Simulated scan of single mutants.
Amino acid sequence: MQSSARDIVIDAGTGSVSGANTRERTAIGLLRSAMAVLQPMNDLGFSYVARGVRKALPSSKRMIYVLGNDSRMRTDFCDAYWSVLTKPNYPYETAIRRLIVLSRDVPYGFIDGGANHGFWSIIVSGPEGGRKPVVAVEAASDTFEHLEDNRRLNGGRFTALNRAVGAKSGEHVRIFGVKHEARSTVQPSAGAKPILDCETITLDDVAAMPEFAWLTKFIVKLDVEGVEVAAFSGAERLLAGDTVFVYEEHGSDSNHGNTRHVLDTLKLRVFWLGEGGAREITDVAQVTPIKKSRRFGYDLIATRSQFWIDRFERLLGNQPTTA
């Protein structure tokens, strides 16, 4: 993996910084100070701080975050979403990380639905995740450019697809949203104008790619901003096999629609592996206390595979659970 003289390199674990001048180090210091204040409040307002810092202290350089041994992710300078990683050991999506650690010994394929810049594709395909085969799927073409850059930065060790996860493959969809972390094929309001377009692919068709030949077990991460039900519709074979899904429940959805669909329609078993201890979710009402903020998505784990269920039940039996 190569960085250039035009990259600022930040170790996401230790916090060490290299390649930054005085102004850029000041910007990083301001981001970290803001995180110290705002993290206890679920990072409320941090994106505004990052944009303000970038405007006040601009730089043409980009930032590379060292995510682990042999794993790096490059972003724009003071990216409003990814700059949380300037805080050493920031607990990014702890439920997914816990699942990956729990499954490191399992030969599985990883489908990164809604990959964004490729954070989890980098981790899972690297030594921390056991170097699993990965296909990263990202719909927005401008965000896909960052994903492809990070694929090359990490030696091309995962596959990247510029597609939108959908119920059927080959359909044309429009993409809405300004923020790269919140792009969706769902029109947010009447009159909202699309900014990009894309072709769809089903999860089953991704799983059938040569990268996953001979594999029978999968982890599917679904961060697809409102089209989770459609994504599940295109995953009949995966649902019938040894697959575990990580899907997002948004804090703003008081009806817990995705979990309701997963429990009541798909009849999957659901587990929470985030902060506060691992536990099974058997009723949508149990999701309410998990959602601490309306601004965030919360990752839940769903499966009907006995292989994965046995693994989660052993985890539940080996540690305390809390309500």
Rank of each mutant, 00 (worst) to 15 (best):
P133T: 00
E138P: 10
S60A: 08
N89G: 13
G276T: 03
V220H: 05
S121N: 07
T200A: 06
G118R: 03
T200M: 11
Y81E: 13
R23Q: 05
S71D: 14
G297N: 06
M209V: 00
V53M: 04
A323V: 08
C198W: 09
L85M: 11
N162M: 07
R269G: 03
S252N: 08
T265H: 09
N42Y: 09
L215H: 12
D205P: 02
I122D: 03
P88A: 05
G126V: 02
K267H: 13
V135P: 02
I100E: 06
T202R: 02
C198R: 10
T75E: 10
V37M: 14
L215V: 08
T216P: 04
N150F: 04
R279Y: 00
T321F: 10
D299F: 02
R62H: 07
L316Y: 11
T143W: 07
W308L: 09
V224K: 01
E248Y: 11
K221I: 00
G226C: 00
H172L: 13
L85I: 06
M35R: 14
D299W: 09
G126R: 05
D142W: 15
F110Y: 09
V287S: 06
L31D: 11
I122W: 05
L67P: 07
Q319T: 08
V49C: 02
L239V: 01
G297V: 03
L238N: 12
L99W: 05
P91W: 06
V9S: 01
P127D: 04
S59W: 10
I290T: 00
D7S: 13
D310F: 10
D142V: 15
Y90T: 04
D112F: 00
R183E: 11
D197H: 13
A50S: 12
D142F: 14
L85Y: 10
G109R: 10
M73V: 02
Y90V: 05
N154I: 06
V229L: 13
G170H: 06
F119S: 00
S189Y: 03
R32N: 02
R98Q: 11
Y90S: 11
I111M: 09
S18E: 15
P320T: 15
A164Q: 05
A20G: 05
R295F: 09
E181S: 14
R62Q: 12
W120C: 04
T303C: 04
W120G: 04
R74V: 06
L315Y: 03
N89M: 13
N42F: 15
D149A: 14
K168W: 07
V66L: 10
D11Q: 07
L316H: 00
R25Q: 14
P133L: 10
L57P: 01
P40V: 05
N116R: 03
H117N: 13
